[in-house]
Write a protein that binds this DNA or RNA. Structure first.
Lengths: 151, 151
DNA sequence: TATAATTATGTTGTGCACAATTTAATTTTA
DNA sequence: TAAAATTAAATTGTGCACAACATAATTATA
């Protein structure tokens, strides 16, 4: 097998599958008026509210250049608010508005539907999950929720 | 486990791993003056030259809106050329220039280095490859090189 | 305790990624 | 065979994604 062939490389299926998944999330997120990266930020906040922009970025592996406009969009929609931490004026503290909190109820149906995207059994799903988490660890991008410190 | 938690969803590791891989490709591709999507187009052309823009898009799962500027960039660098198919003036036929052909020699070292990114043994690498190819099939994005018809 | 280093966020510029639409060429069909 | 449908590519507009840089606040150090 020629190593320069597309079909012998692991990078491409990751790239193609990731894009395809996000494409299939789109119609499911549209009723919530969210894009995929916006949805990720909301997921993090539903897990733990009142966290810094920095900690959201660490969790999602996104830098301020990406996160700042995403957060500003969520603010303009009315799902979140930002304030400075009075004890450290560098830090932005992000929290859910009432509308943002209320949205969680509506979002409960999303994981049910997204689970069906893959066409996998519960066991297969967990197997993929385990393998991807192991690889994330090797790549140094393992997401630890404890990293998201409250403020 | 709360299904709305980031850590219980399969989409995020795919998204994060894909981005991390592409980030690690960057310094390896920089000497060739290629970005990751540009590299993918070159891979397809090194496999089979003289193919339509459409067939490249089918192989890489990219539409004309993404591919047109990527191809135009590769033309401006001088790696490829485009001509219309005289038998069907709608079709763009893409082919490598001499510089584009010569670049394959330099690119031979890339897969050796990218293979090391994952920190996987040969067996593990093939196991991941097999699982991702299976999932690509389920998602209907399995890349068949035979789809790339010559012109 | 000045100054240097670090940190959190924001800004700028480039390059995708894709939906939606347009245009022109080709094919199908009434 | 003229009109309708389809197809390939390009265009437009929005939203990331990230590198590189700027700025302001905080912390460490000479």
């Amino acid at each position: 097998m020629n190593p320069l062939h597309l079909s012998s490389q692991l990078c491409f299926p990751f790239y193609a599958i990731s894009k395809e998944i996000i494409k299939r999330y789109r119609p499911l997120l549209e009723p919530l008026n969210l894009t995929y990266p916006q949805y990720l930020v909301m997921l993090v906040l539903w897990e733990k509210d009142h966290v810094t922009l920095k900690s959201i970025g660490e969790r999602l592996k996104l830098d301020s250049g990406t996160l700042t406009p995403v957060v500003n969009k969520l603010i303009s929609i009315g799902y979140i608010e930002k304030t400075r931490n009075p004890e450290d004026e560098r830090q932005l503290v992000i929290r859910l508005t009432e509308r943002g909190q209320a949205l969680e109820k509506e979002a409960e149906q999303i994981p049910v539907k997204t689970h069906e995207i893959y066409g996998l059994s519960e066991e297969e799903y967990e197997q993929y999950k385990g393998m991807l988490d192991a690889l994330s660890l090797k790549l140094g991008i393992s997401s630890d929720e404890r990293e998201c410190k409250e403020h």
